[in-house]
Computed example of a mutant assay.
Amino acid sequence: MKKICYQFILLLIAVGIVSCNRHIYVPNTVNVPLLKEKHEFKASISPTNLQTAFALTDNLAIMANGQYVYRFDFSDRSDEQGLFVDNQTRGGVVEGAIGFFKPFGPKKQMVFDAFAGYGMGSFKTFTIDKNDNPDANANDYLLKNRFSKVFIQPSIGFVHPVVEAAFSSRFSMLNFYNNTIGPKAFENDATGKSNFQHINSQSNFFYEPAFTFRVGYKYVKFQLQLQASIPITNSDYREYKLNEFFQPLAFGMGASIDIARWYHQIGKK
């Protein structure tokens, strides 16, 4: 675990010096349910994500996730956008998955789960700051893409009535299509236009590790997640040289709800 934390810190330092914008892919929150028993239901909600999971049996579960990024502010773009936030991006994804979970340890406080799923979504953004050109037609600088998504997501975590903590490794494959490029989006930038079009020419693979932390009591907890999104498609993206069209980090806060019978057994012999 110390080694994983150390590698994640190095990743944050590496992406911290990258100024990314024009995002046409913003990773959605990793759904880490950490279920422990049959018919347990867990959901989480944040300003941009809604996630649910339900245990069909003592080891089999399903999940459904939705994301909608609405940070669309073409007239007032923050100077600090890029690493966590691009105020000109709007869009999202819907996805479903099926998976396996297994509590283990002397008190069954550790949980391993692994999900495989499929999703579809789209994002749009702009290549200029409206403040730099207030008379510009926004659609002339529009970038838009649709995509399909396949992912595999193993996680391991600690579950307690008060605190939950987990580390997840999501491996995603995205296929972009139906790209839209405004007529002035890449004026005098042939390289940028070629890079954007290249995204549609191949499957794009991402490694998306995440740390999830929850604190509260039993059924309701505050949730926090820090997540990276590392493109691993080709050599240009290795060693954390991140593509400008993919948001490299996501930080989310929200609430988690857990409906489970095992809470009633706490303190009973």
Rank of each mutant, 00 (worst) to 15 (best):
residue 1 M to C: 03
residue 1 M to S: 05
residue 6 Y to D: 12
residue 6 Y to R: 07
residue 8 F to H: 09
residue 10 L to W: 09
residue 15 V to E: 14
residue 16 G to M: 15
residue 18 V to W: 10
residue 18 V to Y: 14
residue 19 S to E: 10
residue 19 S to G: 06
residue 27 P to W: 05
residue 28 N to T: 09
residue 29 T to W: 11
residue 37 E to C: 05
residue 38 K to A: 14
residue 44 S to M: 08
residue 47 P to E: 13
residue 57 T to A: 12
residue 58 D to W: 00
residue 63 M to W: 00
residue 65 N to E: 15
residue 66 G to F: 04
residue 71 R to Y: 15
residue 73 D to L: 03
residue 76 D to K: 11
residue 78 S to H: 09
residue 85 V to K: 08
residue 86 D to K: 03
residue 88 Q to M: 04
residue 90 R to M: 08
residue 92 G to V: 01
residue 93 V to G: 01
residue 97 A to H: 11
residue 98 I to T: 01
residue 99 G to I: 02
residue 100 F to A: 08
residue 100 F to K: 09
residue 106 P to Y: 02
residue 109 Q to P: 00
residue 109 Q to W: 02
residue 113 D to C: 05
residue 117 G to C: 06
residue 120 M to N: 07
residue 121 G to P: 04
residue 122 S to P: 03
residue 123 F to W: 07
residue 125 T to D: 09
residue 126 F to W: 09
residue 129 D to H: 03
residue 139 N to W: 13
residue 140 D to T: 12
residue 142 L to C: 03
residue 144 K to W: 11
residue 144 K to F: 15
residue 147 F to C: 08
residue 148 S to H: 05
residue 149 K to A: 14
residue 155 S to H: 09
residue 162 V to D: 03
residue 163 V to F: 15
residue 164 E to P: 01
residue 165 A to G: 07
residue 166 A to Y: 03
residue 168 S to C: 13
residue 169 S to M: 07
residue 175 N to F: 11
residue 176 F to Y: 09
residue 178 N to G: 08
residue 180 T to K: 12
residue 180 T to M: 10
residue 182 G to H: 06
residue 183 P to E: 06
residue 183 P to G: 07
residue 183 P to M: 06
residue 188 N to I: 03
residue 188 N to Q: 13
residue 189 D to W: 09
residue 189 D to I: 02
residue 191 T to G: 08
residue 195 N to W: 02
residue 197 Q to E: 10
residue 199 I to M: 12
residue 199 I to F: 09
residue 199 I to V: 14
residue 200 N to Y: 04
residue 203 S to A: 13
residue 216 G to T: 07
residue 218 K to F: 15
residue 218 K to T: 05
residue 227 Q to Y: 08
residue 227 Q to C: 09
residue 230 I to L: 12
residue 230 I to T: 03
residue 231 P to A: 14
residue 232 I to T: 05
residue 232 I to K: 12
residue 232 I to R: 09
residue 233 T to P: 01
residue 235 S to C: 10
residue 237 Y to I: 06
residue 238 R to W: 09
residue 238 R to L: 07
residue 242 L to V: 03
residue 244 E to N: 12
residue 245 F to E: 02
residue 246 F to I: 07
residue 247 Q to P: 00
residue 250 A to W: 02
residue 250 A to Q: 13
residue 252 G to Q: 12
residue 255 A to D: 01
residue 257 I to C: 06
residue 260 A to K: 15
residue 261 R to C: 00
residue 264 H to L: 13
residue 265 Q to I: 10
